[in-house]
Design a protein around this nucleic acid. Structure first.
Lengths: 212, 212
DNA sequence: TAGATTGTTAATCGATTAACAATC
DNA sequence: TAGATTGTTAATCGATTAACAATC
């Protein structure tokens, strides 16, 4: 049974921000925080913060606030950061390599086992101990190693083909950097990173500023 | 006067998706589309699509629908894709290089003039004709070349320092890949790309699926 | 003209904010 | 105990959907 199935996606997407600020508070040695103080830090209203957190349980205490370390830990569990997921990256170009090197990745409990590409010049190279392999062996590798996540950093034109391979190999989720909508069965979770949409939004606001 | 100041940000963030699908329709040689057909493609309701587009003008025609090419062009103008913005990248590591190489960048009207880093091993190297320069010369370069956008692909620890330099050099906007909130004056537009938040969301949904 | 589909208003739904009793 | 702050309900606000007259 999915415990939090009624919690809206907009709430979920705010949790990482709480988590991040709580981590910073821990680093500063602060062990108590009120919704009002969190409001000042995050820019969300205190009321919204209390509403958000109460979706998952009463972590606070009247008259006191929240225990920083405890709340940080609880949010980590809710976000699944205590679980280790195995990942492979399809597309060993600049972006794929950047992600393989990305430190925040491990903090989220993800472990990149391998990169795959079809370019013979890349196959065999190592990125931070991780070997780039021929994409022809990807299904086999995923099945043998029980890989949970497939990451797509190929050009747009190959993204759906790669997704099909991931589906065949039975990954649980896909992290997609290609600017296209993937067709996959409902039971596979797809999280898209839309760099172009972010860029277009920036472009829009710049233009508005200019007109202004 | 900013023409569309009342248009909500949620609407703006849907425009790139319309734009993308319209581009694909052009490639297929289709020159007419109804809100209902766009609904099937994008997953937004036909009603919402009509509402969204009508924020910017009556681009459609009763009984006919929308002219694909015209609508694509109008959205491009609204998104500012007809304007060329000059950009520099601070942080010439994997991610910075990936972005310098990123094709979709030019499609959005952005032109990367230079990468900057403080690592002597990187300074002087060329990424696709673009030279990596010493970050000490960044302010000067930005002012001399009227750079519009600063892109931050440094580690988190340096992000605010870089942002301060960008502010000093008077860029109009910042595209920030570092997982931190930047402090900049209100008149500077900041667009954040939150890779870790996207990853945390994926982690959350995977965990939900597992419990389920 | 008849059919199709927009533009736009009204109804619904969901998310945010305000308020306050409960309680530490 | 008095003060502070949560958890939670109610009120408000905004966004989405439904409906339909206008019109191509």
């Amino acid at each position: 049974m999915d415990k939090y199935s009624k919690v809206s996606i907009t709430v979920i997407r705010r949790l990482p921000k709480y988590y991040r600020y709580l981590g910073e508070l821990i680093d500063k040695g602060i062990n108590r925080i009120s919704s009002q103080e969190l409001s000042k830090m995050t820019g969300f209203t205190a009321s919204q913060i209390r509403q958000d957190l109460n979706n998952f349980g009463g972590f606070g205490q009247q008259g006191y606030g929240y225990n920083v370390e405890e709340l940080h830990g609880e949010l980590g569990k809710i976000l699944g950061l205590d679980t280790i997921y195995k990942a492979v990256i399809a597309g060993a170009g600049n972006l794929g390599q950047a992600i393989a090197n990305y430190k925040g990745f491990e903090d989220a409990g993800f472990k990149v086992l391998s990169l795959f590409d079809k370019n013979p010049k890349l196959i065999g190279l190592k990125i931070r101990e991780i070997e780039i392999k021929d994409v022809d062996y990807m299904v086999e590798f995923i099945k043998e190693n029980n890989v949970d996540i497939g990451i797509i950093t190929t050009p747009k034109a190959y993204a759906q083909d790669i997704a099909d391979i991931f589906v065949k190999a039975e990954v649980k989720g896909i992290w997609n950097f290609a600017p296209t909508d993937l067709n996959v069965p409902d039971n596979i979770i797809v999280e898209n990173v839309r760099l172009n949409e972010s860029l277009f939004a920036l472009s829009y606001f710049l233009k508005q500023k200019h007109i202004h």
